[in-house]
Design a protein around this nucleic acid. Structure first.
Lengths: 370, 370
DNA sequence: ATGAAAGCGCTAACAC
DNA sequence: GTGTTAGCGCTTTCAT
């Protein structure tokens, strides 16, 4: 195979085709018999090039199957075109939704997404941040584990950071996109109280490490506040905080259900707790909603498949991810003011709640009438 | 703003701290009064440096909060330390599991993961591949959408590719990590037949675009073959192929259930179809398993929460992801031989199957006895 | 309209 | 043991 040699003419013997080194901008320039700058201009669309030249360059690009290297470009421009996404867990349906939102937005903005999971471990999270900084990502979106130190360090490097779903106490300078959890809890408790429930339990989570804004704390507080507004003294035995993990959830739920058989309704602060509540209720032969009504925070696919379908407080995970990405990438103004973006929740009434067992009008030990 | 432009060693006036440019290896070298190579040696641990020098360098690194730039390094070494992960969907629980496996393995190997989703759209997938190549990822793991062209192009650039969960027909040279779907289907059908079922339906999916190895085709084939082995002529009316999406699933399931009330069991080839089957059965007032037994391929969290809990063929999504990553990153040998890695499935017997309605020993229109 | 050349931050020869 | 230097592939003045 003979190939007419270009300007400086010496033919390369291309190696056996299979693994010849990727073409660089220089190869293209040589082949098109132009300077590298011209190739760059053609490919970036900036500057001006004659039609004929452009044509030649494009042909060389095609013939060589040239792919510009983002490495060279990034080094020069000091932008990598990728952002980091730090999630506690990718198998969690809420996090996955959030990720989908980030991905969708990043795509429209032409950014890549570097994903990593922290398992809610601050040490690991800090490690991840470090590596992300080393990669020189253009920004980071995180559902933070709660330890401020790592994030402070990140800030010092100058990477823009946006929190989603949770915010870290003591870092008001980092913008956040949150769900209106307080309103969500309120809507759920109001609904339950409206049904006639007087002894409502809360299945919450312990706050590991630092306190969050936008997480456990506010759910608990909103729970108490709503009850108080209704003139119900929150019975402290009825709020139980589960340790992280399935076992913690199980212990908490079983403990609550067994120690307080007079309980008529419960609000599960996470979908894990909701799931556990359903399972434990089944094990204890408690009917839903006949014996106990359940509302769960976070709507997940299985909520509708449950029998009865579970009433839930839906939080817009996908929107939150999308929004966080927008704030990060195209809203530096907002990034500077510290006010968090708060997105509304929605009470999705399905079949898991009814009037309390003793209630006039309630069918005793049977599916709800009303 | 004046900066003393010193050849060697004039003190810089650092700017107001808030956004001064990140320190480079040069800054560190200058501050530690050594050459850049020494800094590099200290940081990479290679070569030899005197304890005293190392000390000085480390101090400078700390004082400057120096973070080596992966950009510079990658450009030089021609390795980015990141791999691409292309999934049809991140909100799908199976994909999320797979992603978790990849993430776990990548982490132990010190690689970053660039995630993108194709929505099973070949056009989009090709776009993603292109961008990944441009980023010079060290390799890509994909649950492919099915169009070979894009992958052929990828191969030509020299990026190693490994498929997971599905393989693309016509690309035997790309190694794949698959689940043993045929065995999974067989175990399910055998189980159903053993229970006494004679009229078993299959809810499959249409094969969009190219045919897969490891997806719809083999499930359907295994279904027919198992039935045949049992001496049952597969009734072609009983296998229905759903179009992608919720609507397609619904149409298929409703169609099957309504047109063939004599059906006593059904195998759902995907979790979406399983979910839909449960919903439709409920709507049609068909009891599970009294009127119809259901087995689903893919075990998902809600399978246990269903009432009754759903019997399913579990596929090791996380392992598959982990394995795919290993094959990609540390098993170039296997990468070359074309034989796919096949991981076993597991039949998880729960409560959604019983003997067929008319069966001697079966309680008519009621939960299973046996 | 186009080319030459100077880096971007790093590693790896190669000198000393 | 340590410094100097030549690139890696690209963009971007600055000349021409």
């Amino acid at each position: 195979m003979i190939r007419a040699g270009g300007a400086k003419g010496v033919d390369h013997d291309w190696e056996p085709s299979v693994s010849r080194r990727a073409a660089t901008i220089k190869d293209v320039a040589r082949r098109a018999e132009v300077g590298v700058a011209t190739v760059s201009r053609v490919l970036s669309g900036s500057g001006s090039v004659s039609a004929a030249t452009r044509e030649r360059v494009l042909r060389a690009v095609a013939e060589l199957e040239y792919r510009p290297s983002a490495l060279g470009r990034s080094l020069k421009t000091q932008r990598t075109g990728s952002i980091g996404l730090v999630l506690p867990e990718i198998t969690d349906p809420f996090c996955a939704e959030l990720a989908a939102g980030v991905l969708a937005c990043a795509r429209t903005l032409g950014e890549h997404v570097l994903l990593d999971v922290s398992h809610d471990d601050p040490v690991r999270e800090t490690e991840i941040i470090d590596r992300l900084v080393e990669q020189r990502v253009d920004g980071v979106i995180a559902v933070p584990a709660g330890e401020p130190a790592g994030w402070r360090a990140a800030l010092r490097t100058g990477v823009p950071v946006v929190f989603a779903d949770r915010a870290v106490a003591g870092l008001p300078e980092i913008p956040a996109v949150l769900a209106d959890d307080a309103a969500g809890v309120r809507s759920a408790v109001d609904y339950l109280a409206g049904l006639g429930h007087r002894r409502v339990g809360l299945l919450g989570t312990t706050t590991t490490g630092q306190a969050y804004r936008g997480d456990p704390g506010v759910r608990e507080a909103a729970f108490r506040a709503t009850l108080a507004d209704r003139g119900l003294v929150p019975d402290e035995d009825l709020v139980v905080l589960a340790r992280p993990g399935r076992d913690g959830a199980f212990a908490a739920v079983a403990g609550l259900f067994q120690s307080r058989p007079d309980l008529t309704a419960v609000l599960a602060a996470t979908h894990l707790l909701g799931e556990t509540a359903v399972l434990v209720a089944r094990e204890l032969d408690l009917r839903i909603p006949g014996d106990v009504s359940i509302v769960m925070i976070d709507d997940v696919p299985w909520a509708e498949l449950c029998d009865p379908p579970l009433t839930a407080v839906g939080r817009p995970g996908r929107d939150m991810g999308h929004r966080a990405c927008e704030v990060l990438l195209r809203d530096p103004a907002r990034r500077d003011r510290g006010r968090p973006v708060v997105l509304p929740t929605e009470l999705l009434i399905r079949g898991s709640c009814g009037p309390p067992a003793g209630m006039p009008g309630a069918a005793p030990r049977s599916p709800r009438t009303r």
